[in-house]
């Protein structure tokens, strides 16, 4: 399988001298094309820092990261922006939709940035809206939608430009359990039907159990990682809870 993401010996240090803190310490792992990976860990374990480093929002102190064969360390501002535009899709906890744009305009924003033509844009919008069930909402504005609907729109925006990898930062953080479940089913659909590669940070064991693989971080290092394989989601969830309890994490295992 093709490696979409390669993280090699990545270290991220905040501060310097005696007050230096290693948020990430020599982390190494790969994500293959089509994988759905969850990252878990206690607060301060480095989950969000890892996501920020991969998404180029923060540069790593040491180490190399490659996305879809393109190294992202040592790039200039513009190259990084183009990289984010072409290779990454984002889903945030707070949806981060632009409230001045309609749902349709929010979804096609990555295509606009890539300067895709109107006909192709319209075709892809119709396609993705239908697959993710937001066709009825296209003409509305974000403030007219519920939280769950907004996150669906954010998912559509994240995958419409067919990015190499979708990065999700606590995507269910602002949703209730029913909407969280719906969203994770949507993630599974995106992963299986659209072939999206997903890297998701969460502290919720149930949410993580939808993934194929869970990486556990502790003190900036990979504590362990587990694969779901052929197991049922309930079994996989049970194992996740065991590990998180061992790590001393409140994992919302409702």
């Amino acid at each position: 399988m093709k490696k979409i993401l390669t993280v090699e010996q990545v270290t991220k240090t905040f501060g310097s001298g005696s007050v230096a803190v290693n948020a990430l310490a020599r982390i190494t792992f790969d994500v293959e094309k089509g994988q759905f990976v969850a990252v878990m860990g206690p607060s301060g374990s480095g989950k969000s820092t890892l996501l920020n480093v991969i998404s180029t929002i923060e540069p790593p102190t040491k180490g190399n990261i490659t996305v879809d064969g393109q190294p992202i360390t040592g790039c200039g501002d513009n190259e990084i922006a183009v990289f984010r535009r072409d290779k990454l899709g984002f889903i945030f906890q707070e949806y981060n939709l632009l409230d001045t744009l309609t749902v349709a305009e929010n979804i096609v924003l990555p295509l606009n940035l890539k300067k895709v033509g109107p006909a192709e844009t319209a075709k892809r919008l119709a396609d993705i809206a239908e697959k993710l069930g937001v066709t009825d909402q296209l003409k509305k504005y974000p403030y007219e939608l519920s939280g769950g609907q907004r996150q669906r729109v954010a998912c559509a925006r994240a995958v419409i430009a067919d990015p190499a990898i979708v990065l999700a930062d606590e995507p269910t953080g602002a949703l209730d359990s029913k909407n969280s479940r719906n969203l994770m089913e949507l993630f599974t659909k995106m992963n299986r039907e659209l072939g999206s590669t997903i890297l998701m940070v969460t502290h919720d064991a149930t949410v993580a159990s939808y993934a194929d693989r869970v990486i556990f971080l502790s003190d900036g290092t990979i504590h362990t990682e587990i694969y779901r394989g052929e197991r049922s989601r309930a079994d996989f969830r049970h194992e996740i809870i065991q590990i998180t309890e061992a790590l001393g994490v409140d994992c919302n295992a409702d």
Partner: peptide, 16 residues
């Protein structure tokens, strides 16, 4: 400002 942050995350260059 939050909107500019979102646009930047989505891959908009600073010049844009």
């Amino acid at each position: 400002k939050q909107k500019y942050k979102i646009m930047w995350r989505l891959g908009t260059t600073k010049a844009q």
